[in-house]
Amino acid sequence: MRFLILSIALLGSTAYAEDNEVDYSSCHSQPDSAEILDSAYHYVNSRFCQPAIWFDNFFVDERIDEDANAGSLVRWRNDFSYVEGKGYQYKTRFKARFHLPKVNKRIKLVFESDDESDLLDLFPKNGEDAENTLALRYDWLNNERTSFNIKLTAHPGAEARLRYTYPINDDLIFRATQKIYQKKRLTGESTELDLDYSLSPEFLLRWNNFATYEDDIKGWELGTGVTLYHHLTEKQAINYRLSTTGTNRPFHYISNTHASMTYRENILRPWFYYEFTPEYNWSREPETSREGEFKATIRLEILFHNI
Rank of each mutant, 00 (worst) to 15 (best):
M1A: 13
L4Q: 13
S7Y: 09
A9F: 09
A17T: 12
E18H: 09
E21Q: 13
V22M: 12
C27F: 03
H28D: 06
S29V: 14
P31F: 03
D32N: 12
D32R: 11
A34D: 13
E35T: 06
S39I: 10
R47T: 09
F48Q: 13
C49F: 08
P51A: 06
I53Y: 10
W54T: 04
F55N: 04
D56E: 13
F59G: 10
D61M: 15
E62Y: 04
R63P: 00
D65S: 09
E66Q: 15
D67H: 10
A68C: 14
A68P: 05
A68D: 14
R75I: 00
W76I: 13
V83E: 11
E84A: 12
G85N: 04
G85E: 06
Y88H: 15
Q89F: 04
K91V: 10
P101L: 03
K102M: 12
K102P: 00
K105T: 09
S113I: 08
D114G: 15
D118Q: 05
L122D: 06
P124S: 10
N132Y: 08
T133W: 01
L134A: 13
L134H: 07
L136Y: 13
D139I: 01
D139M: 03
W140Q: 12
L141E: 12
F148V: 07
N149A: 00
K151H: 01
H155C: 06
P156Q: 08
P156F: 02
A160Y: 01
R161P: 05
L162K: 00
L162G: 00
Y166D: 08
I168E: 00
I168W: 09
I168H: 02
N169T: 02
N169G: 02
D171M: 05
I173T: 12
F174G: 03
Q182C: 03
K183L: 11
K183F: 11
R185K: 15
G188F: 09
E189F: 13
L195V: 15
P201L: 02
E202W: 02
F203N: 11
F203M: 08
L204G: 01
L205V: 05
R206I: 08
R206T: 10
R206S: 14
R206G: 00
R206W: 09
N209V: 05
F210V: 04
F210P: 05
T212I: 13
E214K: 06
E214V: 07
D216I: 02
W220E: 01
G223K: 08
G223R: 11
G223A: 08
T224R: 11
G225V: 05
G225Y: 06
V226E: 14
Y229I: 02
Y229D: 03
H231N: 07
L232H: 12
L232R: 11
A237H: 07
G246Q: 06
T247L: 04
P250A: 03
P250R: 00
P250Y: 01
Y253K: 00
L268M: 08
W271R: 02
E279Q: 15
N281T: 09
E285G: 07
S289P: 00
E291Q: 07
F294M: 01
H305E: 09
H305N: 05
N306V: 05
